[in-house]
Structure formats: C-alpha cells, structure tokens
Design a protein around this nucleic acid. Structure first.
Lengths: 192, 192
DNA sequence: GTCTATATTGTGATAGAC
DNA sequence: GTCTATCACAATATAGAC
C-alpha cells in the first residue's frame, strides 16, 4: 500500500481530469475533489491552474517522445526493427492511455504559446540516422514522410476512435483487437 | 459586396472562434465582438452557447463526411480513382480549413454526448461496396483498415502540424508543399 | 501544511426600453 | 430586431486561523 504525497495526489488527479476534459473545461475544484484534498492546497503547491496544467502536459508529452527518440537515433538498430519496436511500444502506451494523443495534439494546436519552450533536439539527433537507413534500405521516403506515416498509422485510430466507432466500422469492444492486429500490418505497410 | 444577415454573421464568427479555441475556452462575448453584433443577439437567435456550438460542429462535421460518403458508395468508380479523388478533395479541404480535423476529432472525444444524435448511415451504404472492390483488386485489407489508413495518411499531418513543425521536421512555410506532395504518394502507399 | 471563509473577477443569460 | 443594464452564479485565487 503506497502512500502518496499531497503533491503527487494532485498531479495524478490533474492528469486524469485534464486529459479527459482539456484545460478550459476542467475546474480546479474537480481536481481537488478527485485528489481528495482541499482546493486551497492546489494553489499552495502549484500556484495556479495554468502552472499545474503545464506540468501535466509536459509529462504527457515526454511520454510520447521518449517512446521514439532513443530508438530512432540508435545507429545499431536496423530500420525494420525500429519500425517494429516503435509500433509495439506506441500501441501499448496508447492502449494504456487512450486519450493521450488527442489531448496532446489538441492542446498543442490550441495553446501554441504554452509549448514554445519545449524544443526537440531529439529530431536533430535522429534525422541523419534515419535518412541514412532509409537510403540504404532503398526506400524512397523522406524522413518527414517516414515519421508522419508511422505516427499516423499508429496514432490515428486512437485520435479518431469516436468517429470510427460511431460510424459502426468497428464496435467499441473490438477496438483493442483492431489496433492490436494493425501492429503487424503497419510494419508491412511502411516497409512496402 | 455581399450583405450578411445577423444570424449568418454570428454563425461565421462562431465557426472561427470555436474552431480556434474549442467549446469551453470560447466566450460568447468574443463571438459577438468578432461578429460585430451585440451579445444579447446571440441568445436571441440561438438561445444558448451550447446550441450555437452544436450547429457549428454539425456543419463542420458535414463538411468532413460529404467529401467521402458519395465517392465511397458509388459502385461505378474504380477503387484507384476513389482513393485519388478522396485524397485530392480532403487535402484541398484541409488546406482551406487547417483546424478542422483536430477540432472535430477533439470535440468529439471530449464531448461524446453532443454527437450522440449524429449517426452515420453513410458507412452502411459504403461498406459493402468497398468490401467488394477491395476483394476484386486483390488487396488484403479490411474496410476498417482501408478507411483508417486513407484518413490517417491524409489527416494526420494536419492533426499533428504543430508537432511536426516544432520538431523541425519541416518548416512552417514548407507545410503546403509537404501535404501537396504527399497526395500522389498516398495513392501509391494505399494501393501497394 | 491544511483548513474555512471570502475577495474578485468571468461569463452565460435575460429583462425591458426603444 | 437591436440595444443597455444587470442578474446570478461559477470559478480562480488568496487571507488568515489553526
């Protein structure tokens, strides 16, 4: 039985509510209630709703980046294996955090200023490595297209989940099977 | 010089602000100001912020669906041509409404209840047609994967635009070229 | 560190004159 | 149909006791 600090309880609750509702629709009272703490403590620890939000978003964002960056920039991993492990890792991560991609992408587009400070030197390290590997494997694909296609094929089902389900293309209870079975196919689609 | 009715001015302003900020972050006063009308008129014409939002979202949503549905369900168009015209039409639509996909997909996932009434019999009509054409063309692809892949490959660059740009994968001013050049590639990727 | 109570400002909505 | 003025309350934030 783990004992959480008040600070951690607030972070956990904020994580949940912000992800579910977005920044503007989330009330600090709701976070306090979810965390089982007094509203005043939220401001005592984090100063403001906006500051708490930034912390949560950065954490979520880090989750997304950390799946890709180290794998992509590793020169010893063959391209095929990179696609495979990114696909597997992301699918797993997203199944455990279904609201993660739409939350991050939306808040990013609505709230550009907040993300200005988050920079990606990850890309700078990975780009030449991938460029090389794409050339070697004979795939006529730019790095931008390669990344966009992998992420798009993996993440889009989660981003568009409600659309896919209410259209009846697949049923709610089939969703896990749907994205799980896509994993192997994605590797084939990307690598032709 | 076109003269707009007050009602239309409000719709246009609401379209713009809601798309930019989402439902919760949008203030009715801001819509009124953007429309150049009095705040009270917003409620006079539309009753409530929520009702106005529903109208806007349904309109946006219709834009997205109308691009696909008639093409997909047409039995006389070969699969190859369907992919081509959907790719072209969507890319054009999204270039003119860059915020459209993230807005619709996010509001849909955050605000499921609001969309409950919007049903898709479009899918019911298109599904058997596409299923048949996929089989005939020898592509081992389910309808769900086919739709998900087309939409993902076309829409994801717009959904993840901020991520792609701040990573430095492509520059802001290269974005139009990037998605335009993807059009031809997408046809090849989908049809193997 | 944690609480109660309250200050202060938003913000959606409406009453009622014109 | 359109405006001004205002209500009613929701929500962030803080002061100050314990």
């Amino acid at each position: 039985m783990e004992v959480l600090t008040t600070e951690q309880k607030i972070i956990n609750a904020a994580n949940k509510i912000f992800s579910l509702k977005g920044f503007a629709a989330t009330k600090t009272r709701e976070i306090a209630e979810e965390a089982g703490i007094n509203l005043a403590l939220l401001n005592y620890y984090f100063g403001s709703k906006e500051n708490l939000f930034k912390i949560v978003v950065k954490e979520k964002f880090k989750m997304l980046i950390e799946v890709m960056a180290p794998i992509l920039s590793d020169t010893t991993i063959p391209l095929r294996d990179k696609v495979e492990s990114i696909t597997n890792n992301y699918t797993q991560l997203l199944l455990e955090n279904e609201e993660l991609p739409i939350f991050v992408l939306n808040e990013w587009s609505v709230n550009k200023e907040m993300f200005a400070e988050i920079t990606l030197n990850a890309r700078k390290i990975a780009q030449p490595v991938i460029e090389n590997q794409l050339k070697e494997s004979g795939l006529e694909l730019s790095v931008a297209d390669f990344i966009t296609n992998i992420l798009g094929l993996i993440m889009f089902p989660f981003v568009a989940k409600q659309l896919i389900i209410s259209s009846g293309l697949i049923k709610e209870e089939e969703f896990i099977t749907f994205v799980t079975e896509r994993k192997d196919k994605i590797i084939a689609w990307i690598l032709k």
